[in-house]
């Protein structure tokens, strides 16, 4: 337990250093920029915006934790996010007549299922045909993007058929707003609950245990009569499902409609969120919050500097490379090659 705090503290200190270095590299005044970042992300309304930005990152990040823990390098979060959104939008469209209170969860479930089934495609290819998941999920991202663009200009396009977007859902279908000013909606609770569920699943259930075992050494799992294929399929399905759910929450929480700019790269950002969180659900919660805060803060910064949210992507890139490198180094120290 002590080790967790020490490592967490080191990571935080490192992230702060990277943040300062990045700001300096951009040629911005460090103190002033930090102040604006903090104001945008931590002060009263800023905190709400941080939570709003963090919610989809946490959910999709959890999805990545699940897949990567099972040894499946799912790079297809973006595609699963988009397909999940379409699943939700489709149910919202066909279920117009259903009371909003019933339809709301149905939309979210549909988003989860759509994302999960789409990811399971790559899972099936892996289990049945030994297609590398890294390759198939990357490529399926493009399929999903084209599918999304077709859907919002075709079957799911708005009734007036002018713009490439869906109709806006009625306000009654939107998630409840806790803070109207800053868009804070109840989706944040879904994210928090998901953190708890994934933690319990991974560490307190036999299935979660088997899944981690398969991720660490599939051969050892097989030698103990645990069939890796089904567990891997489950893991990638749940992973895609969480990415889809992230999209569903964003849809009903913020945008209310789907259009070309919907994705915001959440599915890609989920990977660094999971990695930086040490592939642990609670770690993903904190790294999701950190990057949520950066997004919220840099929006504030953008009003004065013109660099916008670019700074967030730079910081993410540097942080992940540093973190992954550090982990590899620690790993190598811990498991020296045994003799013989």
């Amino acid at each position: 337990m002590k080790r967790v705090f020490v490592e967490g503290g080191l990571v935080l200190a490192g992230l702060l250093l990277i943040l300062i270095a990045t700001i300096a590299t951009f040629g911005l005044p460090v103190g002033e920029s930090l102040r604006m970042l903090a104001e945008g992300s931590l002060s009263g309304g800023g905190l709400a915006r941080t939570l709003v930005k963090a919610t989809p990152l946490i959910l999709a990040g959890l999805g990545m934790v699940l897949a990567w823990r099972a040894g499946i390098y799912n790079i297809g979060g973006e595609g699963q996010y988009l397909v999940g959104a379409l699943g939700g939008a489709w149910v919202a469209r066909v279920g117009v007549a259903v009371p909003a209170l019933v339809l709301k969860p149905l939309v979210l479930i549909a988003a989860f299922l759509a994302g999960g089934l789409f990811a399971a495609l790559a899972g099936l290819l892996m289990v049945k045909r030994h297609v590398q998941v890294v390759i198939s999920t990357i490529l399926l991202n493009f399929v999903a993007l084209q599918f999304f663009n077709w859907a919002v200009t075709g079957p799911l396009q708005e009734a007036s058929r002018r713009l490439p977007q869906t109709d806006r859902v009625p306000d009654s279908l939107m998630l409840f707003r806790l803070d109207r000013q800053n868009d804070l909606h109840t989706g944040v609770f879904v994210a928090l609950a998901s953190v708890a569920v994934v933690t319990v699943f991974l560490f307190l259930t036999p299935t979660g245990f088997r899944l981690r075992l398969v991720g660490d050494n599939p051969r050892a799992a097989r030698a103990n009569r645990i069939e890796p294929g089904r567990l891997q399929l489950l893991a990638i399905g749940l992973s895609g499902g969480l990415c889809g759910l992230a999209a569903g929450i964003e849809y009903l929480g913020i945008t209310g409609q789907l259009g070309y700019g919907f994705s915001q790269q959440i599915g890609f950002l989920a990977i660094p969120v999971a990695l930086l969180g040490g592939l642990h659900p609670i770690g993903a919660l904190f790294s999701g919050l950190y990057f949520g805060a950066l997004f919220a803060g840099s929006e504030n910064l953008a009003r004065f500097s013109g660099f916008g949210t670019t700074i967030v992507f730079v910081i993410q890139g540097v942080a992940v490379i540093g973190f992954v490198g550090l982990r590899a180094l620690i790993e190598r120290r811990r498991t020296p090659e045994a003799a013989l």
């Binding site: 245990f209 981690r212 075992l213 660490d216 050494n217 051969r219 050892a220 799992a221 097989r222 030698a223 103990n224 790993e331 498991t335």
Partner: peptide, 15 residues
């Protein structure tokens, strides 16, 4: 085939 080397002794027994 026997062990998950990065997992703990407890977890390897739990197999």
């Amino acid at each position: 085939d026997g062990l998950a080397l990065r997992m703990s002794v407890l977890e390897n027994l739990l197999v």
